[in-house]
Write a protein that binds this DNA or RNA. Sequence first.
RNA 1: GUCCCUAUCGUCUAGAGGCCUAGGACAAUACCCUUUCACGGUAUGAACCGGGGUUCGAAUCCCCGUGGGGACGCCA
Length: 470
Amino acid sequence: MPRLAMNIRTRFAPSPTGFLHIGGARTALFSWAFARRHGGSFILRIEDTDVARSTPEAVQAILDGMQWLGLAHDEGPFYQMQRMARYKEVIAGMLEAGTAYHCHTSREELDALRAEQEARKEKPRYDGRWRPEPGKALPAAPAGVPPVVRFRNPLDGVVAWDDLVKGRIEFANAELDDFVIARADGTPTYNFCVVVDDHDMKITHVIRGDDHVNNTPRQINLLRALGAPVPEYAHLSMILGDDGQKLSKRHGAVSVMQYDDEGYLPEAVLNYLARLGWSHGDDEVFGMEQFVQWFDLDHITASAAQFNTEKLNWLNAHYLKQADPRRLAAEAGRRLARQGVTLGDGPDASRVAALYRDRVGNLNELADAMHPYFSPPKPSAELAAQHLTEPALKGLAALKARFEHCAWLAAELGQAVKQTAAEAGLKMPQLAIPLRVALLGLPQSPSIDAVLEVMGRERVLSRLDRVLGA
RNA sequence: GUCCCUAUCGUCUAGAGGCCUAGGACAAUACCCUUUCACGGUAUGAACCGGGGUUCGAAUCCCCGUGGGGACGCCA
């Protein structure tokens, strides 16, 4: 494969106008995996030429999101605003070579032009009125209107490329207009910077969102005008929200960091994203190491995919079940601390976490489940009335006596509960549930013997005292 | 409006002309396990957008239609 011989270089190039959302995260994941898969380099580039909308907070949010996901870049982050000198140099060269020209059309004129074209049901585009042609008389440049620089796009022929996910795509040059590459204030625009950067950074594979398909022919023409090689392109279709609607800042698009807040494990989010629009036969559950070995651009779906929170939840639960209890205890501890609960003088948090990791769907639920172990429970009046009845309390008293000198091991403790129930003429649930309410303030819990063992004799006895009124 | 992309169970998808009476996963339903609640296990229902071609044969190729999406900025 020639692909193995060349040094694969991919990039993720977000604009810092908001948080890193799920669609961006998947684009980053695929670019990262492709570079990793081929032993290449993954570059992070911040496209901040829109000075009005870019913010340092957004840059940080993107960096945080990438870090949380564990998508490390090999080069960068590069900031376009720091590459101004280079862009201006290229623009000057193009002006010199005649592949770009000054255009003095005002915004008002452009608006009028667009309105006319729309009225005629045509595709709105610049009409080339300032485009120099042999034998064409250009109007006199109006004074006081700083010109923009436009790219001189070929008039006819077609631009085509073999998109690595969508197959061959062709555009007639007649559909394209002479787009602005530098604003009146001299700052370069997106389509221009991308081309210069991708070229300078020797990007071999441009993996990006579907919404850039229409920019690609312009960028290819620009690349040709610059005498630069054209990279491979892979356009990823978009991700729709859970409701099938497209994601936008005001509808459904959430920061990847929100998944952290909601108790998702990064490996679950990553695994979910990997399977959203890409597949490896029937494989569903796999870690990043495996993903990198399998990943290719041939098995990416060309159509849009709908986000499915339920499947993400299932993967999250799956990863929770096999996560290291110490890590889970730390994560739950972080969350409990926010509620003012410390793990300090409670039972072994790792053991508690181990008791619950296969019963909860996310870290917040885990924290909730662990909560009663670390702060005294307060059974509601309803629960008390329902379960802490006269016969149940008698049973609990008997149980307490037994617990005082019973060996503190799950098997023994389970036996103790069974025997006490039998002696008190109670069925197992008739004693086990009141016991749960007494210890945890809840009628449900993991196996009662395991709960007892983890909680420890002292804590069990004192909690029993509380309900027995001793 | 113009251009571009796209179309398999509710959802994510397998499928690259015969292996498909279309497979897997999530979700759903039922049952089992069980000291509670979960977990887990087993089973069931559920799809090739429509119409034309091409071919001995089409979910797979082509065309048209329809649905969905994207783009049409001195945003990225």
